[in-house]
Nucleic acid binder design. Structure first.
Length: 470
RNA sequence: GUCCCCAUCGUCUAGUGGCCUAGGACGCCGGCCUCUCACGCCGGUAACGGGGGUUCAAAUCCCCCUGGGGACGCCA
C-alpha cells in the first residue's frame, strides 16, 4: 500500500484556535500512525481577510505544538492559475457552465424557495443557455439532477446526500477567482492528499467536493469529520469563553506536550490510557477511536495533565521556561537578576506544587529574591510572628547560627532538639520559621527550603523578622 | 423552513449483542501521610435522554420522540 498523505488547511484569518489545533493534531497523528506524510496548506484565497500575521501565528502555534509539516507549505492563493486551468477543463468537458445571473437574482430565487418551504438554492436557469465567458459571469458546476453522493466518513460512518439538496455551486467568481470548494479539491488532488480529516462544519461541503472529483474523474480521498469543541456552557467554543489561541495556553503556563496530550484525549481514546508520550500517540492513533460527538473543553483536566508533565520535566528546560515567565511578567531586568543556580535547586521542591509554569514562577519567587526584597504576607505575619513567637525565633536563630553543617538532616535534628528541650510541639515553631524564611504560610518542607536558600539567606531572613516586633 | 450530524457519571471517555449489579480519568467529598501547602495512597459520590420494537439476551441493532449542534454565500 502506498503512503498516505494528510493535510491541515487553515485559513489565515486569525490565530490558531484550540479546535483547529486539535484538527491539525489528529491529521498529523493519522499520517504518522500510518507512516505517511502530513502537509500544510494555507487557504488564503480570501484576500480581504487573510493576513501574513495570521499565517505566521498559525506557523508559530504549530511549531510550539511540534506539528511540523513534511512538505513545503502550500499557499492556495499562489495556485490560482492552476485552479483556473481546471475550471477550463470542467467547462470543456461540459461539467461546468457560465451563468450571468446577478447576486440579486439568485437571492430572489433562494427567497422564493425558502418561502415555499424548500431548500434555498440557485435554480440552474443558465444551465443550458450555452453562455460563453463575459464580464460579471460566474462558472458553475453542473450538479447531477438525480441520484445522490455517498461516502463513508472515517469518523461518522456512511453519509449520503441527495443531489437535489445541492445547487450548481460557483466554481469561479465573477472577478475570476476560484472558490473554496474548487480550490480545495484541486489542491488536495495535486498534493496527493489521500485522507482529509477536518472540522465538522465541512460535512456539507464534502458531497459537493466529491461531485467535483467525479466530474474531473479523479480519485476521491477518504474523508473524516471531527466534531467541534464546546465551551463549559456546551456552546461552541469562542472568544467569549476565554479559550483562545493556542499561544495563549503557552502564556498561561501550559507545556506544549500537556496541551497535545489533552487535545489528543479530547475526542479520541485508547482504552483507559490518559497519559501518552508523543511516540505512543504517533503509534497508537487511529480514526476508529475518534468520537463522533462534540466534547467540552475541561480546563481542570488540562491543568492536571500539565502538572503531570511539570513533575517530569527536565530541570534546565523548566528553568528556562520559568525565566521566560518572569521576563514576561516582571521584565528583563528581573529575569536577569535571577540566580539560575538557586532556581535549579528550588525547582525540584516546587514541581509537585504547581499546575502551571506561571504558578511555578510565582512559587519560586521567595527563593530568588534577596532578604531585603522578600515580600511578607500580612496575614501570615500577624498570625505567626507575634511577640512570643519572635522571642522563640530569636533563640532558634542563635542555635542555628551555631550549626556547622547546613544540611537537611542536621537542620532537622537541631530543630527537633530545640523544641524538645523546651517541651514544645514541633508545630509551635514550624509556621513561625516558615513565615520568616518564605514570607508565606505555605511552602515546600522547611529544611529542604533552608538548604536551597543557604545559611546566609536563611539566617538573614530569621534576623530580619525581628523587626516586626518593633 | 429544508437537509445533515450527534446523544454513557458534572466533564473527558471505555464499551462494537452476553465478560456491565456499566470500567477508567479529571473534578468533587471523606480519610491516611504530614512542619504548612502540594504530591502520593485509600475510599466515596455520580451516567446508558424517553418510548416502541428486533433478540433467548441490548448501553450496544432498527424506528419514533425529545434535546443539542451544524449547514444552506460570488466566506473558508
Amino acid at each position: 500500500m502506498s503512503q498516505i498523505v494528510t493535510r491541515f488547511a487553515p485559513s489565515p484569518t486569525g490565530f490558531l484556535h484550540i479546535g483547529g489545533a486539535r484538527t491539525a493534531l489528529f491529521s498529523y497523528l493519522l499520517a504518522k500512525s500510518q507512516g505517511g506524510r502530513f502537509e500544510l496548506r494555507i487557504e488564503d484565497t480570501d484576500r480581504e481577510r487573510s493576513t501574513p500575521e495570521a499565517t505566521q501565528a498559525i506557523l508559530d502555534a504549530m511549531q510550539w505544538l511540534d506539528l511540523q509539516p513534511d512538505g513545503e507549505t502550500v499557499f492556495q492563493h499562489a495556485r490560482a492559475d492552476r485552479h483556473n486551468e481546471v475550471i477550463e477543463q470542467l467547462l470543456a468537458s461540459g461539467n461546468a457552465y457560465y451563468c450571468d445571473c446577478t447576486k440579486e437574482q439568485v437571492d430572489a430565487m433562494r427567497e422564493t424557495a425558502r418561502a415555499q418551504g424548500k431548500k434555498p438554492k440557485y435554480d440552474g436557469s443558465c444551465r443550458e443557455r450555452g453562455l460563453g465567458p463575459g464580464p460579471g459571469r460566474v462558472v458553475r458546476l453542473k450538479t447531477p439532477l438525480q441520484g445522490s453522493v455517498a461516502y463513508n466518513d472515517m469518523v461518522k460512518g456512511p453519509i449520503a446526500t441527495a443531489c437535489e439538496e445541492m445547487d450548481d455551486m460557483i466554481l469561479r467568481r465573477s472577478d475570476g477567482t476560484p472558490t473554496y470548494n474548487l480550490a480545495v479539491v484541486v489542491d488536495d488532488h495535486d498534493m496527493g492528499v489521500t485522507h482529509v480529516l477536518r472540522g465538522d462544519d465541512h460535512v456539507n461541503n464534502t458531497p459537493r467536493q466529491i461531485l467535483i472529483y467525479r466530474a474531473l474523474e479523479w480519485d476521491v480521498p477518504e474523508f473524516g469529520h471531527v466534531p467541534m469543541i464546546l465551551g463549559p456552557d456546551k456552546k461552541k467554543l469562542s472568544k467569549r469563553h476565554g479559550a483562545l489561541s493556542v499561544m495563549e495556553y503557552q502564556s498561561m503556563g501550559y507545556l506544549p506536550e500537556a496541551v497535545v496530550n489533552y487535545l489528543a484525549r479530547l475526542g479520541w481514546s485508547h482504552g483507559d490510557q490518559e497519559v501518552f508520550t508523543r511516540e505512543e500517540l504517533e503509534q497508537l492513533f487511529s480514526v476508529e477511536h475518534l468520537g463522533s460527538s462534540p466534547s467540552v473543553f475541561d480546563t481542570k483536566k488540562l491543568e492536571w495533565l500539565n502538572a503531570q508533565y511539570i513533575v517530569q520535566a527536565d530541570l534546565n528546560r523548566l528553568a528556562d521556561l520559568v525565566l521566560d515567565v518572569i521576563r514576561e511578567e516582571a521584565g528583563d531586568q528581573e529575569a536577569a537578576n535571577v540566580d539560575r543556580d538557586v532556581l535549579l535547586r528550588a525547582l525540584p521542591l516546587l514541581q509537585p506544587r504547581a499546575k502551571t509554569l506561571v504558578e511555578l514562577a510565582e512559587a519560586s519567587q521567595f527563593f530568588l529574591v534577596d532578604v531585603s526584597h522578600l515580600q511578607y504576607d500580612e496575614k501570615a505575619v500577624n498570625k505567626f510572628l507575634k511577640p512570643d513567637s519572635l522571642a522563640l525565633l530569636a533563640e532558634y536563630t542563635t542555635a542555628l547560627r551555631g550549626l556547622d553543617r547546613f544540611e537537611e538532616e542536621a537542620l532537622e535534628a537541631l530543630t527537633k532538639e530545640f523544641v524538645e528541650q523546651r517541651e514544645l510541639k514541633f508545630k509551635a515553631i514550624a509556621q513561625p520559621i516558615r513565615v520568616s524564611i518564605t514570607g508565606r504560610t505555605a511552602s515546600p518542607g522547611l529544611f529542604e527550603t533552608m538548604v536551597v536558600l543557604g545559611r546566609e539567606q536563611t539566617l538573614a531572613r530569621l534576623d530580619r523578622v525581628q523587626d516586626f516586633g518593633l
